[in-house]
Design a protein around this nucleic acid. Structure first.
Lengths: 218, 218
DNA sequence: GCACAATGTTGTCAATGACAACATTCGCTC
DNA sequence: GAGCGAATGTTGTCATTGACAACATTGTGC
Protein backbone atom coordinates (compact mmCIF):
# COMPACT_ATOMS: atom_id res chain seq x y z
CA UNK A 1 0.00 0.00 0.00
CA UNK A 2 1.18 3.44 -0.70
CA UNK A 3 1.02 6.01 1.99
CA UNK A 4 -1.42 8.02 -0.07
CA UNK A 5 -4.54 5.89 0.25
CA UNK A 6 -6.84 8.47 -1.22
CA UNK A 7 -5.69 12.04 -1.21
CA UNK A 8 -8.56 14.41 -1.07
CA UNK A 9 -6.98 16.50 -3.76
CA UNK A 10 -6.21 14.80 -6.99
CA UNK A 11 -2.99 16.66 -7.61
CA UNK A 12 -3.57 18.08 -11.07
CA UNK A 13 -7.01 17.11 -12.11
CA UNK A 14 -7.07 19.58 -14.92
CA UNK A 15 -4.20 17.97 -16.76
CA UNK A 16 -5.53 14.48 -16.14
CA UNK A 17 -8.93 15.51 -17.42
CA UNK A 18 -7.48 16.89 -20.61
CA UNK A 19 -5.46 13.76 -21.22
CA UNK A 20 -8.41 11.44 -20.61
CA UNK A 21 -10.70 13.68 -22.62
CA UNK A 22 -8.35 13.64 -25.59
CA UNK A 23 -8.48 9.84 -25.62
CA UNK A 24 -12.21 9.75 -25.13
CA UNK A 25 -12.73 12.37 -27.80
CA UNK A 26 -11.10 10.24 -30.46
CA UNK A 27 -12.93 7.17 -29.19
CA UNK A 28 -16.50 8.39 -29.04
CA UNK A 29 -16.55 11.93 -30.36
CA UNK A 30 -17.40 15.20 -28.65
CA UNK A 31 -21.09 14.49 -28.28
CA UNK A 32 -20.70 11.26 -26.35
CA UNK A 33 -17.77 12.49 -24.34
CA UNK A 34 -19.14 12.42 -20.80
CA UNK A 35 -17.81 14.49 -17.95
CA UNK A 36 -19.18 11.98 -15.51
CA UNK A 37 -17.50 9.13 -17.32
CA UNK A 38 -14.18 10.98 -17.21
CA UNK A 39 -14.70 11.56 -13.51
CA UNK A 40 -15.26 7.86 -12.97
CA UNK A 41 -12.13 6.96 -14.89
CA UNK A 42 -10.09 9.34 -12.79
CA UNK A 43 -11.69 8.27 -9.54
CA UNK A 44 -13.16 11.64 -8.64
CA UNK A 45 -16.69 12.70 -8.03
CA UNK A 46 -18.93 13.69 -10.91
CA UNK A 47 -18.71 17.40 -10.20
CA UNK A 48 -14.98 17.67 -9.71
CA UNK A 49 -14.39 18.72 -13.33
CA UNK A 50 -16.47 21.79 -12.72
CA UNK A 51 -13.69 23.26 -10.60
CA UNK A 52 -11.53 23.38 -13.74
CA UNK A 53 -14.00 23.75 -16.58
CA UNK A 54 -17.19 25.67 -16.07
CA UNK A 55 -19.00 23.42 -18.48
CA UNK A 56 -18.40 20.76 -21.05
CA UNK A 57 -17.85 23.24 -23.84
CA UNK A 58 -14.97 24.82 -22.00
CA UNK A 59 -13.29 21.46 -21.73
CA UNK A 60 -13.71 21.00 -25.47
CA UNK A 61 -12.36 24.47 -26.10
CA UNK A 62 -9.29 23.67 -24.04
CA UNK A 63 -8.80 20.52 -26.09
CA UNK A 64 -9.03 22.52 -29.29
CA UNK A 65 -6.53 24.99 -27.93
CA UNK A 66 -4.12 22.15 -27.19
CA UNK A 67 -4.71 20.85 -30.66
CA UNK A 68 -3.59 24.07 -32.27
CA UNK A 69 -0.45 23.98 -30.19
CA UNK A 70 0.23 20.44 -31.35
CA UNK A 71 -0.26 21.44 -34.96
CA UNK A 72 2.07 24.35 -34.45
CA UNK A 73 4.75 22.04 -33.14
CA UNK A 74 4.24 19.54 -35.94
CA UNK A 75 4.53 22.20 -38.62
CA UNK A 76 7.48 23.82 -36.92
CA UNK A 77 9.30 20.49 -37.00
CA UNK A 78 8.41 19.98 -40.65
CA UNK A 79 9.75 23.45 -41.37
CA UNK A 80 13.24 22.63 -40.13
CA UNK A 81 15.94 22.34 -42.82
CA UNK A 82 13.62 23.35 -45.61
CA UNK A 83 14.35 22.16 -49.14
CA UNK A 84 15.27 24.88 -51.58
CA UNK A 85 12.56 23.96 -54.05
CA UNK A 86 9.32 25.70 -53.18
CA UNK A 87 7.05 22.86 -54.19
CA UNK A 88 9.01 20.40 -52.10
CA UNK A 89 9.07 22.71 -49.14
CA UNK A 90 5.34 23.28 -49.31
CA UNK A 91 4.66 19.60 -49.83
CA UNK A 92 6.59 18.72 -46.73
CA UNK A 93 4.51 21.11 -44.65
CA UNK A 94 1.32 19.88 -46.22
CA UNK A 95 2.12 16.25 -45.52
CA UNK A 96 2.96 17.03 -41.92
CA UNK A 97 -0.36 18.75 -41.52
CA UNK A 98 -2.55 16.07 -43.02
CA UNK A 99 -0.59 13.44 -41.15
CA UNK A 100 -1.58 15.14 -37.93
CA UNK A 101 -5.18 15.34 -39.04
CA UNK A 102 -5.26 11.68 -39.88
CA UNK A 103 -3.89 10.77 -36.48
CA UNK A 104 -6.39 13.00 -34.63
CA UNK A 105 -9.50 13.22 -36.77
CA UNK A 106 -11.93 13.98 -33.96
CA UNK A 107 -9.65 16.62 -32.49
CA UNK A 108 -9.33 18.28 -35.86
CA UNK A 109 -13.05 18.27 -36.37
CA UNK A 110 -13.45 19.82 -32.97
CA UNK A 111 -10.93 22.51 -33.82
CA UNK A 112 -12.92 23.39 -36.91
CA UNK A 113 -16.29 23.37 -35.25
CA UNK A 114 -17.88 26.76 -35.21
CA UNK A 115 -19.54 27.02 -31.84
CA UNK A 116 -16.73 27.78 -29.47
CA UNK A 117 -17.66 29.50 -26.26
CA UNK A 118 -16.39 32.95 -26.99
CA UNK A 119 -12.65 32.50 -27.14
CA UNK A 120 -12.79 32.24 -30.90
CA UNK A 121 -10.33 35.09 -31.35
CA UNK A 122 -7.83 33.14 -29.33
CA UNK A 123 -8.25 30.13 -31.58
CA UNK A 124 -7.90 32.26 -34.69
CA UNK A 125 -4.65 33.56 -33.33
CA UNK A 126 -3.47 30.04 -32.50
CA UNK A 127 -4.34 28.97 -36.01
CA UNK A 128 -2.34 31.80 -37.52
CA UNK A 129 0.60 30.97 -35.32
CA UNK A 130 0.51 27.30 -36.27
CA UNK A 131 0.54 28.11 -39.96
CA UNK A 132 3.33 30.64 -39.77
CA UNK A 133 5.80 28.27 -41.47
CA UNK A 134 3.56 28.15 -44.52
CA UNK A 135 3.52 31.90 -44.71
CA UNK A 136 7.30 31.95 -44.34
CA UNK A 137 7.64 29.49 -47.19
CA UNK A 138 5.44 31.63 -49.39
CA UNK A 139 7.46 34.76 -48.63
CA UNK A 140 10.74 32.99 -49.31
CA UNK A 141 9.30 31.60 -52.51
CA UNK A 142 8.32 35.07 -53.61
CA UNK A 143 11.73 36.45 -52.72
CA UNK A 144 13.32 33.73 -54.81
CA UNK A 145 11.02 34.48 -57.71
CA UNK A 146 9.43 31.06 -57.52
CA UNK A 147 6.04 32.38 -56.51
CA UNK A 148 3.92 35.12 -57.97
CA UNK A 149 4.19 38.40 -56.12
CA UNK A 150 0.62 38.49 -54.93
CA UNK A 151 -0.53 39.16 -51.41
CA UNK A 152 1.03 36.35 -49.35
CA UNK A 153 -2.05 36.15 -47.17
CA UNK A 154 -4.17 35.42 -50.19
CA UNK A 155 -1.83 32.62 -51.19
CA UNK A 156 -1.87 31.33 -47.65
CA UNK A 157 -5.66 31.25 -47.62
CA UNK A 158 -5.65 29.16 -50.76
CA UNK A 159 -3.14 26.68 -49.40
CA UNK A 160 -4.68 26.49 -45.96
CA UNK A 161 -8.13 25.96 -47.42
CA UNK A 162 -6.96 23.23 -49.73
CA UNK A 163 -5.25 21.30 -46.96
CA UNK A 164 -8.26 21.71 -44.72
CA UNK A 165 -10.53 20.48 -47.45
CA UNK A 166 -8.36 17.52 -48.36
CA UNK A 167 -8.23 16.44 -44.75
CA UNK A 168 -11.99 16.81 -44.42
CA UNK A 169 -12.61 14.85 -47.60
CA UNK A 170 -10.32 12.10 -46.46
CA UNK A 171 -12.02 11.88 -43.09
CA UNK A 172 -15.33 11.42 -44.81
CA UNK A 173 -14.21 8.88 -47.34
CA UNK A 174 -14.61 11.30 -50.21
CA UNK A 175 -11.21 10.58 -51.69
CA UNK A 176 -11.44 7.33 -53.54
CA UNK A 177 -8.71 5.10 -54.79
CA UNK A 178 -5.63 6.74 -53.40
CA UNK A 179 -4.07 7.52 -50.04
CA UNK A 180 -4.36 11.04 -48.79
CA UNK A 181 -0.65 11.70 -49.10
CA UNK A 182 -0.88 11.15 -52.83
CA UNK A 183 -3.77 13.57 -53.16
CA UNK A 184 -1.89 16.11 -51.11
CA UNK A 185 1.34 15.84 -53.05
CA UNK A 186 -0.45 16.15 -56.35
CA UNK A 187 -2.65 19.00 -55.19
CA UNK A 188 0.31 21.01 -53.97
CA UNK A 189 2.02 20.54 -57.29
CA UNK A 190 -1.12 21.54 -59.14
CA UNK A 191 -1.51 24.64 -57.05
CA UNK A 192 2.02 25.72 -57.65
CA UNK A 193 2.00 24.91 -61.35
CA UNK A 194 -1.59 25.74 -62.11
CA UNK A 195 -4.19 23.94 -64.14
CA UNK A 196 -3.59 25.85 -67.34
CA UNK A 197 -1.19 24.20 -69.75
CA UNK A 198 2.23 25.82 -69.85
CA UNK A 199 3.91 26.48 -73.14
CA UNK A 200 7.16 24.66 -72.39
CA UNK A 201 7.00 21.50 -70.29
CA UNK A 202 10.71 20.83 -70.84
CA UNK A 203 13.07 21.61 -68.00
CA UNK A 204 11.00 22.07 -64.94
CA UNK A 205 10.70 20.63 -61.45
CA UNK A 206 13.63 18.25 -61.21
CA UNK A 207 16.18 20.99 -61.81
CA UNK A 208 16.53 21.78 -58.16
CA UNK A 209 20.09 23.02 -58.55
CA UNK A 210 21.55 26.20 -57.12
CA UNK A 211 18.92 27.40 -54.74
CA UNK A 212 20.13 30.94 -54.96
CA UNK A 213 19.92 31.33 -58.69
CA UNK A 214 16.45 31.25 -59.98
CA UNK A 215 14.12 33.65 -61.59
CA UNK A 216 13.74 32.36 -65.10
CA UNK A 217 12.27 28.94 -64.99
CA UNK A 218 11.76 27.14 -68.27
CA UNK B 1 -63.15 25.58 -36.51
CA UNK B 2 -61.89 23.16 -39.02
CA UNK B 3 -63.44 19.78 -39.28
CA UNK B 4 -60.15 18.17 -38.31
CA UNK B 5 -59.97 18.96 -34.61
CA UNK B 6 -57.01 16.73 -33.87
CA UNK B 7 -56.43 13.95 -36.31
CA UNK B 8 -54.75 11.00 -34.73
CA UNK B 9 -52.39 10.78 -37.65
CA UNK B 10 -50.37 13.84 -38.41
CA UNK B 11 -50.50 13.41 -42.15
CA UNK B 12 -46.87 13.48 -43.07
CA UNK B 13 -44.94 13.73 -39.88
CA UNK B 14 -41.73 12.73 -41.55
CA UNK B 15 -41.69 15.71 -43.85
CA UNK B 16 -42.75 18.08 -41.09
CA UNK B 17 -40.01 16.74 -38.85
CA UNK B 18 -37.39 17.29 -41.49
CA UNK B 19 -38.56 20.82 -42.11
CA UNK B 20 -38.62 21.73 -38.43
CA UNK B 21 -35.32 19.97 -37.84
CA UNK B 22 -33.66 21.91 -40.62
CA UNK B 23 -34.68 25.16 -38.95
CA UNK B 24 -33.70 23.97 -35.51
CA UNK B 25 -30.39 22.67 -36.80
CA UNK B 26 -29.34 26.09 -38.03
CA UNK B 27 -30.61 27.68 -34.84
CA UNK B 28 -29.01 25.52 -32.17
CA UNK B 29 -26.81 22.99 -33.92
CA UNK B 30 -27.03 19.22 -34.09
CA UNK B 31 -26.13 18.63 -30.46
CA UNK B 32 -28.94 20.72 -29.01
CA UNK B 33 -31.46 19.67 -31.57
CA UNK B 34 -34.03 17.86 -29.48
CA UNK B 35 -36.43 15.29 -30.78
CA UNK B 36 -38.76 16.04 -27.92
CA UNK B 37 -38.66 19.72 -28.70
CA UNK B 38 -39.50 19.05 -32.33
CA UNK B 39 -42.37 16.86 -31.21
CA UNK B 40 -43.71 19.65 -29.06
CA UNK B 41 -43.51 22.15 -31.92
CA UNK B 42 -45.43 19.81 -34.16
CA UNK B 43 -47.96 18.89 -31.51
CA UNK B 44 -47.21 15.20 -31.39
CA UNK B 45 -46.05 13.01 -28.57
CA UNK B 46 -42.40 12.71 -27.75
CA UNK B 47 -42.00 9.29 -29.29
CA UNK B 48 -43.78 9.93 -32.54
CA UNK B 49 -40.53 10.69 -34.39
CA UNK B 50 -39.36 7.18 -33.68
CA UNK B 51 -41.85 5.85 -36.20
CA UNK B 52 -39.92 7.67 -38.93
CA UNK B 53 -36.37 7.83 -37.60
CA UNK B 54 -35.04 5.03 -35.46
CA UNK B 55 -32.88 7.44 -33.54
CA UNK B 56 -31.66 10.99 -33.62
CA UNK B 57 -28.70 10.18 -35.83
CA UNK B 58 -30.97 8.87 -38.55
CA UNK B 59 -32.84 12.14 -38.56
CA UNK B 60 -29.54 13.97 -38.94
CA UNK B 61 -28.51 11.61 -41.69
CA UNK B 62 -31.72 12.35 -43.54
CA UNK B 63 -31.05 16.06 -43.19
CA UNK B 64 -27.57 15.59 -44.62
CA UNK B 65 -29.05 13.63 -47.47
CA UNK B 66 -31.44 16.45 -48.23
CA UNK B 67 -28.54 18.85 -48.05
CA UNK B 68 -26.66 17.05 -50.78
CA UNK B 69 -29.72 17.18 -52.95
CA UNK B 70 -30.01 20.91 -52.38
CA UNK B 71 -26.36 21.39 -53.29
CA UNK B 72 -26.89 19.34 -56.38
CA UNK B 73 -29.74 21.58 -57.45
CA UNK B 74 -27.82 24.75 -56.68
CA UNK B 75 -24.82 23.63 -58.71
CA UNK B 76 -27.00 22.38 -61.53
CA UNK B 77 -28.57 25.82 -61.76
CA UNK B 78 -25.20 27.51 -61.70
CA UNK B 79 -24.08 25.20 -64.48
CA UNK B 80 -26.74 26.40 -66.87
CA UNK B 81 -25.55 28.53 -69.79
CA UNK B 82 -21.90 28.15 -68.89
CA UNK B 83 -19.45 30.85 -69.95
CA UNK B 84 -16.88 29.81 -72.50
CA UNK B 85 -13.92 30.79 -70.38
CA UNK B 86 -12.93 27.99 -68.01
CA UNK B 87 -12.00 30.23 -65.12
CA UNK B 88 -15.29 32.04 -65.29
CA UNK B 89 -17.23 28.84 -65.54
CA UNK B 90 -15.48 27.35 -62.54
CA UNK B 91 -15.81 30.54 -60.57
CA UNK B 92 -19.52 30.60 -61.11
CA UNK B 93 -19.85 27.06 -59.75
CA UNK B 94 -17.59 27.85 -56.84
CA UNK B 95 -19.56 30.93 -55.87
CA UNK B 96 -22.81 29.01 -56.02
CA UNK B 97 -21.38 26.40 -53.73
CA UNK B 98 -19.99 28.71 -51.08
CA UNK B 99 -23.14 30.78 -51.24
CA UNK B 100 -25.09 27.71 -50.26
CA UNK B 101 -22.65 26.94 -47.47
CA UNK B 102 -22.96 30.43 -46.10
CA UNK B 103 -26.71 30.20 -46.07
CA UNK B 104 -26.72 26.79 -44.35
CA UNK B 105 -23.58 26.59 -42.24
CA UNK B 106 -24.86 24.07 -39.72
CA UNK B 107 -26.26 21.85 -42.43
CA UNK B 108 -22.97 21.90 -44.25
CA UNK B 109 -21.07 21.05 -41.11
CA UNK B 110 -23.44 18.18 -40.54
CA UNK B 111 -22.90 16.94 -44.07
CA UNK B 112 -19.19 16.87 -43.47
CA UNK B 113 -19.34 15.22 -40.09
CA UNK B 114 -17.77 11.82 -40.11
CA UNK B 115 -19.97 9.68 -37.95
CA UNK B 116 -22.92 8.86 -40.09
CA UNK B 117 -24.87 5.79 -39.18
CA UNK B 118 -23.75 3.47 -41.91
CA UNK B 119 -25.20 5.00 -45.03
CA UNK B 120 -21.94 6.75 -45.76
CA UNK B 121 -21.70 5.18 -49.21
CA UNK B 122 -24.99 6.78 -50.08
CA UNK B 123 -23.72 10.18 -49.03
CA UNK B 124 -20.51 9.71 -50.99
CA UNK B 125 -22.60 8.98 -54.03
CA UNK B 126 -24.79 12.01 -53.39
CA UNK B 127 -21.71 14.14 -53.08
CA UNK B 128 -20.34 12.91 -56.36
CA UNK B 129 -23.65 13.56 -58.04
CA UNK B 130 -23.83 17.10 -56.68
CA UNK B 131 -20.38 17.93 -57.99
CA UNK B 132 -20.92 16.47 -61.41
CA UNK B 133 -21.08 19.93 -63.04
CA UNK B 134 -17.56 20.65 -61.79
CA UNK B 135 -16.30 17.47 -63.34
CA UNK B 136 -18.07 18.36 -66.56
CA UNK B 137 -16.43 21.78 -66.57
CA UNK B 138 -13.02 20.19 -66.09
CA UNK B 139 -13.58 17.76 -68.94
CA UNK B 140 -14.77 20.50 -71.25
CA UNK B 141 -11.81 22.61 -70.24
CA UNK B 142 -9.48 19.80 -71.08
CA UNK B 143 -11.16 19.21 -74.42
CA UNK B 144 -10.74 22.89 -75.22
CA UNK B 145 -7.09 22.77 -74.21
CA UNK B 146 -7.63 25.19 -71.38
CA UNK B 147 -6.82 22.66 -68.70
CA UNK B 148 -3.93 20.27 -68.34
CA UNK B 149 -4.71 16.74 -69.44
CA UNK B 150 -4.34 15.15 -66.05
CA UNK B 151 -6.79 12.78 -64.45
CA UNK B 152 -9.99 14.83 -64.16
CA UNK B 153 -10.78 13.21 -60.83
CA UNK B 154 -7.52 14.49 -59.44
CA UNK B 155 -8.35 17.98 -60.57
CA UNK B 156 -11.80 17.62 -59.13
CA UNK B 157 -10.40 16.59 -55.76
CA UNK B 158 -8.25 19.70 -55.70
CA UNK B 159 -11.12 22.01 -56.54
CA UNK B 160 -13.61 20.31 -54.23
CA UNK B 161 -11.13 20.36 -51.36
CA UNK B 162 -10.35 24.02 -51.85
CA UNK B 163 -13.98 25.04 -51.85
CA UNK B 164 -14.67 22.88 -48.83
CA UNK B 165 -11.76 24.42 -47.01
CA UNK B 166 -12.65 27.98 -47.93
CA UNK B 167 -16.17 27.46 -46.68
CA UNK B 168 -14.90 25.91 -43.46
CA UNK B 169 -12.44 28.74 -42.91
CA UNK B 170 -15.12 31.30 -43.50
CA UNK B 171 -17.48 29.61 -41.07
CA UNK B 172 -14.81 29.75 -38.41
CA UNK B 173 -13.77 33.33 -38.97
CA UNK B 174 -10.41 32.30 -40.36
CA UNK B 175 -10.64 34.52 -43.40
CA UNK B 176 -9.86 38.02 -42.32
CA UNK B 177 -10.47 41.26 -44.11
CA UNK B 178 -12.42 40.16 -47.14
CA UNK B 179 -15.73 38.55 -47.98
CA UNK B 180 -15.71 34.90 -48.87
CA UNK B 181 -16.68 35.53 -52.44
CA UNK B 182 -13.48 37.48 -52.97
CA UNK B 183 -11.38 34.69 -51.53
CA UNK B 184 -13.17 32.20 -53.71
CA UNK B 185 -12.80 34.17 -56.91
CA UNK B 186 -9.13 34.75 -56.30
CA UNK B 187 -8.46 31.16 -55.26
CA UNK B 188 -10.10 29.78 -58.37
CA UNK B 189 -8.00 32.05 -60.51
CA UNK B 190 -4.86 31.04 -58.64
CA UNK B 191 -5.66 27.38 -59.04
CA UNK B 192 -6.18 27.72 -62.75
CA UNK B 193 -3.18 29.95 -63.32
CA UNK B 194 -0.87 28.50 -60.71
CA UNK B 195 1.38 30.14 -58.19
CA UNK B 196 4.50 29.98 -60.29
CA UNK B 197 5.21 33.07 -62.36
CA UNK B 198 4.54 32.64 -66.03
CA UNK B 199 7.13 33.79 -68.51
CA UNK B 200 4.86 35.52 -71.00
CA UNK B 201 1.67 37.24 -69.90
CA UNK B 202 1.16 37.98 -73.61
CA UNK B 203 -0.16 35.18 -75.71
CA UNK B 204 -0.42 32.18 -73.50
CA UNK B 205 -3.84 30.75 -72.83
CA UNK B 206 -5.00 30.79 -76.41
CA UNK B 207 -2.12 28.57 -77.43
CA UNK B 208 -4.11 25.46 -76.79
CA UNK B 209 -1.20 23.04 -77.17
CA UNK B 210 -2.67 19.77 -78.41
CA UNK B 211 -4.08 18.12 -75.33
CA UNK B 212 -3.37 14.58 -76.43
CA UNK B 213 0.33 14.98 -76.89
CA UNK B 214 1.92 15.45 -73.49
CA UNK B 215 1.61 12.57 -71.10
CA UNK B 216 4.79 13.51 -69.32
CA UNK B 217 3.95 13.90 -65.72
CA UNK B 218 7.05 14.86 -63.83
C1' DG C 1 -1.75 29.33 13.97
C1' DC C 2 -5.42 31.05 11.42
C1' DA C 3 -8.41 32.87 7.90
C1' DC C 4 -9.53 32.20 3.35
C1' DA C 5 -9.13 30.50 -1.28
C1' DA C 6 -8.78 26.36 -3.90
C1' DT C 7 -10.35 21.99 -4.64
C1' DG C 8 -13.33 18.03 -4.04
C1' DT C 9 -17.95 15.71 -2.45
C1' DT C 10 -22.90 14.65 -1.76
C1' DG C 11 -27.38 15.47 -3.15
C1' DT C 12 -30.56 17.01 -6.37
C1' DC C 13 -33.08 18.59 -10.72
C1' DA C 14 -34.75 18.94 -15.36
C1' DA C 15 -33.98 17.40 -19.93
C1' DT C 16 -33.06 13.96 -23.08
C1' DG C 17 -32.90 9.62 -25.99
C1' DA C 18 -34.38 5.18 -26.02
C1' DC C 19 -37.54 1.53 -25.17
C1' DA C 20 -41.95 -1.37 -24.10
C1' DA C 21 -46.76 -1.80 -24.05
C1' DC C 22 -50.87 -0.11 -25.74
C1' DA C 23 -54.26 2.71 -28.89
C1' DT C 24 -55.97 4.39 -33.19
C1' DT C 25 -56.30 4.65 -38.02
C1' DC C 26 -55.32 3.24 -42.76
C1' DG C 27 -55.54 0.22 -46.57
C1' DC C 28 -56.14 -4.00 -48.59
C1' DT C 29 -58.56 -8.32 -49.25
C1' DC C 30 -62.57 -11.00 -49.32
C1' DG D 1 -68.53 -3.13 -46.67
C1' DA D 2 -66.45 -5.92 -42.93
C1' DG D 3 -62.56 -7.20 -41.01
C1' DC D 4 -57.74 -7.82 -40.36
C1' DG D 5 -52.90 -6.66 -40.33
C1' DA D 6 -49.65 -2.85 -41.04
C1' DA D 7 -48.63 1.80 -40.21
C1' DT D 8 -48.66 5.44 -37.18
C1' DG D 9 -49.23 7.70 -32.76
C1' DT D 10 -49.54 7.72 -27.34
C1' DT D 11 -48.57 6.89 -22.40
C1' DG D 12 -45.39 5.47 -19.17
C1' DT D 13 -40.86 4.51 -17.78
C1' DC D 14 -35.68 4.25 -17.28
C1' DA D 15 -30.77 5.40 -17.19
C1' DT D 16 -27.70 8.98 -18.36
C1' DT D 17 -26.25 13.42 -18.48
C1' DG D 18 -24.96 18.41 -17.50
C1' DA D 19 -25.68 21.79 -14.32
C1' DC D 20 -26.28 23.67 -9.82
C1' DA D 21 -26.36 24.41 -4.51
C1' DA D 22 -24.68 23.32 -0.11
C1' DC D 23 -21.13 21.39 2.35
C1' DA D 24 -16.31 19.22 3.42
C1' DT D 25 -11.34 19.11 3.15
C1' DT D 26 -6.91 20.83 2.14
C1' DG D 27 -3.40 24.11 1.00
C1' DT D 28 -1.39 28.76 1.53
C1' DG D 29 -0.20 33.28 2.74
C1' DC D 30 -0.27 36.49 6.56
Amino acid sequence: MTNTPKPYHHGNLRRSLLRAAAVSLEAVGPRDLSLRELSRELGVSHTAPRRHFADKQQLLDALAQDGYEQVRIALAEAAANPPADFTERLTRLALAYVDFVQRHPALMELMLTTKHSGNAPHLVEASGLAFAPVLAAIRDGQAAGEVVAEDPDGVKVLIFATLLGLAAMSSNGLILGEPLSVSVTRSVRQIVEGLRPRPEPHSQARERTSPGSHASIT
